[in-house]
Nucleic acid binder design. Structure first.
Length: 852
RNA sequence: GCGAGUGUGGCGGAAUGGUAGACGCGCUUGACUUAGGAUCAAGUGCCUUUGGCGUGGGGGUUCAAGUCCCUCCACUCGCACCA
């Protein structure tokens, strides 16, 4: 009978489901393993990136399951977000309907892959039973001072009609729609993630289960720097401007000051002056620019002189104050002291506007002359023109200058972070409502716990224009203040969807809990996640936010651990070459059959290998793949084709190869069903039996170790080798004892292969009349002794080059090995008449003879 | 510019400092076949083949280097006027 996956895969999926094979409960007497894959956004159907992510997770889960761990392996839906709302506007449906039907379809797709999820733990974040608890957490955070509202200059995506967090602006464009982002002054809600900056940073040093790359990215994003805040008096006033600097040692060289266009002091300085209008226009011009433009590489530095001066606190120098396009309101204090001699940006600015350049740091090996400088000098040196600090090494002066000014109360050393508070307001409908009431008398009042969830109103017509959709529902908007009972308005912003994904892994621990977000004892049992798997694109956003939430929930007393994810595996992208027809543009692979466009017959241009994407049409539909080859082949190919963290290049021929391999497994076991069902005595060719034991046990060892290290591709390679060997061994079987060992080899093969291709192995297992379900059976163990052969091949090198090979008894003595080597004919040819200078012996491996 | 990483056959990829190229794809030859895009067997780094050369280039450490060190080159990713 031929291997036909379609027939067997459905059967086993149903069986596992009916038996609730992967349903788990917390059990303190057993060691747990939490395997988690990043949950998907229900966009409509799954793509190969999902398949790869879940295939990797499933191998690990099933492996740990067979190893006897209490494995929690949940799945759910990151169900709030823009596409549902856009689809609703387009199709005049409700986002909930669109989302739910997508979830239903994608769930059938996931089930077709035979993934070992405990579906009883499924959650969807758009479910009020989910966001109710999120709202509660936000209120708890508010009570702790970790949530606040303020007006500021925010990133606004015109296409999405909403605000974006800093992290969500990539290359000046919206992370989701690639639309242009500009600055808009708006009210917004914030999470005080900056309170945790220090801990989020310091914990990265202990997170050795994460890829270094991701940790570095997070460290850079948090961006800790040591420096000082220094006050500068505004000339002829009592007011001051505070700057942040990491180079207090260069203060003697500060000749002007630059402030961000958004800085409140900018308008204040201009106020009432004759250049006020011109100055305001200048500010306006910069703020109006979109983010791509403003952040452009070669952006020219532009400034506007406010007409006002500040006084250098060290030497009393009058420093003109400029509004400058390159100063960031977001970083430090939004104002910088400009030291053109020692800062390249200030240097360029000074050259352009003809401002003073004063040397403050003189290097040992050259003499800086302002007029001759072509770029700023930012290296080390001694202070010059520096009063009592004259001649001091600049590193010392960084501290000394601040201490001196601190005594006068005009400076303090500070630590500054690049990390900003997390802006969570979105002016959209399809998100969790922010649970506050704005009362004209009492201000911001949290919605009382017993009134949660604040549900999304059903009566909103989505148009995509005209501001926040929730404002259009009178029933939602108008309410009474829980404090004073007076008329009040509900907050109409909804939360950034990254809030939902910041704690979903906790909800999985108690998905049905209706008294709390989750049960503390269950979370403390299951968490932290032992293995988290997902795309590198979440290196900062989702992973940083989740770490923040975990720490907050710990401090709120919900949980007792510091970090959510012990180990992180960032799987690589799934790529494929692109096809293009000059007339029809990008083509789907099936439209480029035989190098000709199926629409017009023209020659197809084969492009580079790129990430599979709808826009370039270089996609392979998981449904079709499963139809053609079955889920087992799809899983096997994806695991085998590349290490999990590498890019995976799609290869139709590679898929065929994986399918062929499963066919070989199928025939091998089918041919020997009778043998497996029989019982055998002992006896037979001892060497042959030893050989079979060697192959079996070293394969068990290799596959076990490889899966532990997540070298999944080499584990599969070892299984392929094993199957190749078993085909050879099969032809030599005679005696009972040989058949017995061969039978054991086959059962080991099925077990080892099961995490990768569970359906075919389960089917063969059943046909072999094994009693229990394979997925529930034990992982095979190996006997170390069997993994060693009696004879070993020892290579003989002359001067480091391999010249011969010897077959020697395992662990033979050094002297015996050398004598054997010197007796070897080939070696004699190299050693005769030569002086042996040195002899190296590596047991069971190698001999190196150095001759002269 | 700063930071991180990667460079191995025709391709994807293997190799605790110890036989470079496991495994797979592709290719070659053969077998079985009405047929082969099924299956099986053998072969497959390169060359001027008793041998020589080979892991991006150059240098170094070592008995021994894909692996460690220095340097250069190329590519990828992340951050990017962060004061």
């Amino acid at each position: 009978m031929k291997y036909s996956p379609a027939e067997i895969e459905h059967k086993w999926q149903k069986k596992w489901e009916d038996d609730k094979l992967f349903k788990v409960e917390a059990d303190n007497s057993r060691e747990k393993f939490y395997c988690l894959e990043m949950f998907p956004y229900p966009s409509g159907k799954i793509h190969m990136g999902h398949v790869r992510n879940y295939a990797i997770g499933d191998v690990i889960s099933r492996f740990k399951f067979m190893k006897g761990f209490n494995v929690i392996h949940p799945m759910g839906w990151d169900a709030f977000g823009m596409p549902a709302e856009n689809a609703a506007i387009e199709n005049k449906t409700h986002p909930a309907i669109w989302t739910k039907s997508n979830i239903a379809y994608m769930k059938t797709q996931l089930k077709q892959l035979g993934l070992s999820y405990d579906w009883d733990r499924e959650i969807a974040t758009c479910d009020p039973e989910y966001y109710k608890w999120e709202q509660l957490l936000v209120i708890k955070m508010f009570e702790k001072g970790l949530v606040y509202k303020r007006t500021s200059h925010l990133n606004w995506c015109e296409a999405c009609q909403t605000v974006l967090a800093n992290e969500q602006v990539e290359d000046g464009k919206c992370w989701r729609c690639d639309g242009e982002v500009r600055i808009k002054e708006l009210d917004g809600w914030y999470f005080k993630i900056t309170d945790y900056a220090e801990e989020l940073l310091s914990c990265t040093e202990k997170m050795d289960g994460w890829p270094k790359k991701v940790l570095t990215m997070q460290q850079n994003w948090i961006g800790k720097s040591f420096g000082a805040e220094i006050d500068f008096n505004i000339e002829n006033t009592d007011e001051k401007i505070t700057v942040f600097t990491t180079r207090a040692d260069t203060l003697f060289g500060a000749t002007f000051m630059s402030v961000a266009p958004e800085h409140p002091v900018a308008k204040k300085l201009l106020s009432g002056t004759e250049q006020e209008k011109e100055g305001l226009d200048f500010i306006e011009g910069i703020l109006k620019e979109d983010k791509i433009n403003r952040m452009a590489d070669d952006k020219e530095k532009k400034g506007f002189f406010t007409g006002k001066y500040v006084i250098n606190p060290l030497n009393g120098r009058r420093m003109p104050v400029f509004i400058a396009n390159f100063v960031l309101m977001d970083y430090g204090t939004g104002a910088v002291m400009a030291v053109p001699a020692h800062d390249q940006r200030d240097f360029e600015f000074a050259k352009k506007y003809n401002l003073d350049i004063k040397i403050a740091i003189m290097p040992e090996d050259q003499e800086l002359v302002p007029a001759e400088m072509t770029e700023a000098y930012s290296g080390a040196g001694r202070l010059v023109d520096a009063a009592q600090f004259e001649g001091m090494p600049n590193e010392e002066a960084k501290i000394a200058v601040v201490e001196f000014l601190a005594e006068k109360g005009i400076a303090k050393s500070t630590v500054n972070f690049r990390l900003r508070d997390w802006q969570i307001s979105r002016q959209r409908y399809w998100g969790a409502p922010i649970p506050f009431i704005n009362c004209p008398k009492c201000g911001t009042v949290p919605v009382p716990e017993d009134q949660l969830p604040v549900r999304l109103p059903e009566d909103v017509e989505l148009s995509g224009t005209g501001g926040s959709p929730l404002r259009k529902s009178a029933a939602f908007l108008n309410t009474t203040c829980p404090k004073c009972g007076g008329a009040a308005e509900r907050e109409t912003d909804t939360m950034d969807t990254f809030v939902e994904s910041s704690w979903y892994f906790l909800r999985y621990c108690s998905p049905k809990c209706d008294t709390a977000p989750f049960k503390t004892d269950e979370a403390n049992y299951w968490m932290p996640v032992d293995q988290y798997i997902g795309g590198i694109e979440h290196a900062i956003l989702h992973l940083l936010y989740s770490r923040f939430f975990t720490k907050v929930l710990r401090d709120l007393g919900y949980i007792n651990f510091d970090e959510p994810f012990n180990r992180l595996l960032t799987q690589g992208m799934v790529c494929k070459e692109t096809y293009r027809c000059e007339e029809h543009g990008w083509l789907f692979p099936e439209e480029a059959e035989g190098g000709k466009c199926t629409k017009c017959g023209k020659e197809v241009t084969v492009g580079r290998v790129e990430k599979m994407s709808k826009s370039k049409k270089n996609v392979v539909d998981p449904n079709k793949l499963i139809q053609l080859y079955g889920a087992d082949t799809a899983r096997l190919f994806i695991i085998f084709a590349a290490p999990p963290e590498n890019e995976l290049e799609w290869s139709d021929q590679g898929v065929e190869g994986s399918f062929r391999f499963l066919g070989r497994v199928w025939r091998l076991v089918k041919n020997n069903l009778g043998l497996i069902q029989q019982n055998f005595g002992t006896g037979g060719d001892e060497a042959f039996i030893k050989e079979m034991l060697y192959h079996t046990h070293s394969t068990i060892k290799k596959v076990t170790n490889d899966i532990d290290k997540y070298h999944l591709n080499t584990a599969v390679a070892a299984l392929m080798e094993f199957v190749n060997y078993l085909y050879k061994a099969e032809t030599k079987l005679k005696a009972d004892g040989e058949k017995l060992v061969f039978k054991e080899a086959l059962t080991a093969l099925l077990k080892l292969l099961n995490p990768f291709t569970p359906h075919i192995t389960e089917e063969l297992w059943e046909e072999a009349e094994m009693k229990e379900i394979l997925s529930r059976s034990d992982w095979p163990s190996y006997v170390e002794e069997y993994t060693k052969t009696d004879e070993v091949t020892v290579v003989v090198q002359i001067n480091g080059k391999v010249r011969s090979q010897l077959s020697l008894p395992r662990d033979c003595a050094q002297d015996d090995a050398f004598s054997a080597a010197f007796l070897d004919e080939k070696i004699k040819g190299y050693t005769d008449g030569k002086e042996v200078v040195k002899k190296i012996f590596v047991p069971n491996k190698l001999i190196n003879i150095v001759v002269k």
